[in-house]
Design a protein around this nucleic acid. Structure first.
Length: 685
DNA sequence: GCAAGGTC
């Protein structure tokens, strides 16, 4: 078969054809783009689109994501056998899928051809294939391939149908099986260990995405709790020019010792002047932002309104279902060139809130609408944009906020750069190597900030300076500070981290973060995200017995295997078999230690008391009298004195006092320092 | 019941 003739035109087929879309919205768009005319019927409340003519009957039906899910009837572990089952039969949270399943049974009955028209990505290939496998006939199946739901592209794709993309399907099936095998088996191992220790069932979980995410949070918060602050000294100046006062910071940053800071400060005080070494003023042009993908929208809604990523995602999904915005679960920062931007703008202009902005945009662009785009792409969906449909008057305020972000961002991407003048002056302080700088900026053209004003830079204009000019110093500020611990993670920073290491997807990242809270691994306090003793314990246990699962590299390995399946270098059965072997041998090594692990986790759950208690916190003590966290804090506290005595020349006791008092000190370190001062913990060499 | 991945 040569290349060209391997394509099949829908309109060359004869008989009864069913087209399967991934979701109702897509089914509707496919029907109106591809069918010359259709009748819309409803089965179990699910719309089907039917065309009859030219010896052909075509029905467009729709899934609602995955209709089938892996499951097993077996309990216990290791469990290596499973089968695909309708999701609503194995999980009552999926009951809303049942009507789609029933409508698909109707739509697939007695067909001559089955066309998988789900999103052209690995999951879409699986969704369509399983429906055809269980409700149709894979021997009579074809695949439609399109990367956007625009009418022209859809029509074209149905003229160039191919055979089923079996390589992609096999890769997709393997992804499901690998995640299931690792997730279900390790989760069961943890739960079973606790059950053996205390005879009670507790729900615990582990997985390829959630466990590395938990490990990341554990690592961040552990470093924070173990932070030893070091004294640092910040020297800044206030200079005066044309009766304007300007603050200046030291270019080399902070001093490590007070004596050095004092030396420089006193020289400047004596001289009373600094000299302008350099002054630069440049106009910078800042191009419009990229169109939103979900992660960027979540980031902005968090930054501007404090919405959690999950909240933003839920709102965006509701806006999508009300047809106000395009598909939100996308990674793309690109807008389809086939989209009628002008029409959307005209519709947006019917909303008084945007009328003026649209008029302004059309006038500044002269109607030539070319969006700025970012590098990120998505195989199945474009960036998020407003559809132009007018929101109802009673749209809840939080939904309106997210909608407004999407509209304003969409307007901004067509606009012009804003222009800002950035100023930078460098003063030499008359001490070799000691320079200070001030920066200022002021806006000279608003550009896209008119539409998307959430980024408006602060105006901090400073006077202009001449090189060589002497400037009077009116203040010399020497501040004693402490080195700061790493920031506490937030739901948003966790999600951004997941994006940066490429684990999870747009649809799942925010949800998986919520799962960590729901399991009791993480909790929210007034301070922000905290990790619980259970969360720490789970990471320690998995890190010891199933270390692969705590690392993002497992995802990289999966991706490599899936790619190899796709290009025919290996097969799904080989990849899955290897995973089973790996899991078997890990579980084999886990078994003899299971009781101990169960007890440890039960202690973390507060279900049993530790055999010996940490003198500071009451957690299970190691061989000494402290838990592993306070022991590590104790070790670092002793180690930290070296540096403190170099910088400050303090006694050990004064060092402890200062560390105990500092607000930058990590929680565990502070607790140890206080205990040593009280005498409840002795310092040994 | 446990994963991650779709989507109502």
């Amino acid at each position: 078969m040569d290349y060209v003739t391997s394509f099949v035109d829908l309109w060359s087929l004869r008989g009864r054809v069913v087209i399967i879309a991934e979701k109702p919205k897509a089914a509707s768009k496919i029907a109106s783009a591809v069918l010359p005319s259709y009748r819309k019927i409803t089965v179990q409340g699910v719309p089907l689109y039917v065309y009859k003519g030219n010896g052909l009957e075509v029905t467009v039906a729709s899934a609602a994501g995955h209709i089938f899910n892996l499951s097993t009837k077996l309990s216990g572990y290791p469990v290596f056998s499973y089968e695909w089952a309708p999701s609503f039969e194995v999980d009552r949270r999926s009951l809303h899928i049942k009507k789609f399943y029933q409508a698909l049974i109707e739509a697939c009955r007695g067909r001559d051809y089955y066309i998988n028209a789900c999103d052209y990505d690995i999951e879409g290939s699986v969704i369509g294939f399983l429906i055809i496998k269980f409700l149709g006939d894979p021997k009579k199946a074809l695949r439609a391939k399109f990367s956007s739901l625009t009418p022209a592209e859809l029509r074209e794709s149905f003229k160039r149908l191919t055979r089923l993309d079996y390589e992609m399907i096999e890769a997709g099936l393997a992804r499901h099986e690998l995640d299931w095998l690792w997730g279900v088996n390790i989760s069961r191992a943890l739960m079973s260990a606790v059950e053996r220790a205390v005879g009670k069932r507790v729900i615990l979980s582990a997985g390829r995405v959630q466990t590395p995410t938990l490990a990341y949070v554990a690592q961040q918060l552990t470093e924070r709790n173990l932070h030893i602050p070091y004294p640092i000294f910040s020297l800044s100046l206030v200079v005066e020019k044309d009766s304007a006062r300007v603050g200046a910071s030291r270019e080399k940053g902070v001093f490590e010792t007070q004596s050095e800071a004092l030396r420089v400060a006193s020289i400047i005080k004596e001289k009373k002047y600094v000299q302008v070494e350099d002054y630069v003023e440049e106009k910078v042009s800042v191009p419009p932002p990229f169109p939103f993908n979900l992660g960027d929208l979540q980031g902005e809604a968090y930054r501007i309104y404090g919405f959690s990523p999950y909240k933003t995602q839920e709102i965006a999904e509701r806006l999508y279902l009300e047809a106000l915005i395009s598909y939100p679960r996308t990674n793309s920062q690109k807008l389809p060139p086939t989209l009628n931007y002008g029409m959307i703008l005209n519709q947006l202009a019917e909303n008084p809130a945007y009328r003026y902005l649209v008029a302004q945009l059309l006038s500044e662009t002269g109607g030539r609408l070319k969006p700025r785009e970012g590098p990120k792409e998505d195989p199945a969906h474009p960036a998020i944009y407003p559809t132009g449909v007018k929101p109802p008057h009673n749209l809840p305020p939080d939904m309106l906020k997210v909608y407004d972000l999407v509209v304003r961002r969409f307007l901004a991407v067509f606009s012009r750069p804003y222009e800002i003048v950035r100023q930078r002056v460098v003063f030499s302080a008359g001490v070799p190597g000691e320079t200070f700088y001030s920066e200022g900026q002021y806006l000279v053209r608003k550009g896209w900030l008119l539409y998307y004003y959430f980024h408006t830079p602060r105006e901090t204009r400073i006077p202009s300076f001449r090189k060589g000019e002497l400037v009077r110093v009116v203040e010399v500020d020497l501040k004693k500070m402490s080195s700061k611990p790493p920031n506490r993670p937030t739901k948003m920073s966790i999600l951004k981290w997941m994006e940066s290491v490429e684990i999870g997807t747009e649809s799942t990242r925010a949800r998986i973060i919520e799962t960590l809270f729901y399991r009791g691994y993480l909790k929210m306090s007034s301070r922000g995200v905290e990790i619980t003793d259970l969360g720490l314990g789970v990471i320690e246990v998995i890190g010891e017995f199933f270390p692969e699962l705590t690392k993002v590299e497992l995802t990289r390995e999966f991706e490599k295997s899936l790619e190899d399946i796709r290009v025919g270098k290996t097969s799904r059965s080989l990849v899955v078999e290897k995973a089973k072997q790996t899991l078997s041998s890990l579980i084999e090594k886990f078994e003899p230690r299971k009781s101990g692990v169960g007890k440890e986790l039960a202690i973390r759950l507060g279900m049993i008391a530790p055999a010996s208690k940490c003198v500071i916190c009451g957690r299970q003590a190691l061989s000494g009298n402290m838990c592993r966290y306070h022991f590590e804090a104790y070790r670092r506290l002793k180690e930290g004195y070296q540096e403190w005595s170099r910088r400050e020349g303090v006694s050990f006791r004064d060092y402890l006092k200062r560390v105990a008092e500092s607000r930058s000190t990590g929680k565990w370190v502070k607790e140890v320092a206080e205990a040593v001062l009280k005498g409840s913990v002795l310092v040994l060499d």
